[in-house]
Amino acid sequence: MRIPILKLHNYLLISIQTELDDKTAIQFQEDLLEKIHSSGATGVVIDLTSVDIVDSFIAKVLGDVVTMSDLMGAKVVLTGIQPAVAVTLIDLGIHLQDVPTALDLEQGLIKLRQELEE
């Protein structure tokens, strides 16, 4: 199972539509970093609207992806985190402090542009 990564101008768009298991998540991490490298993208939006469970492992993978992409010069914004997911993350004590978030894909793109302009 691989998660498709779409390219739009300088941005990469990912919508995660499947139940994330550990292998898929790790595979996704590798694919995304590879794609940033090959495309030279400066911004990434990962949309989690259809994800209804994020446990500590997935959260760590996502947090790592953001930091790793940052190192490679691409800003990442997470969008569409569901209320139930947000509540469980808080309960788990995972705050994803340094990860930019936005309500939906549109807001995410606006946020990316702002972050990149600064």
């Binding site: 550990d22 209804d52 469970i53 994020v54 446990d55 569901q82 209320p83």
Partner: peptide, 17 residues
């Protein structure tokens, strides 16, 4: 309800892992 379902499913995920 949805939020507690997510809590339970996440807890199971942690234990299973």
């Amino acid at each position: 309800k949805t939020v507690d379902q997510a809590r339970i499913a996440t807890a199971i995920s942690e234990l299973a892992r």
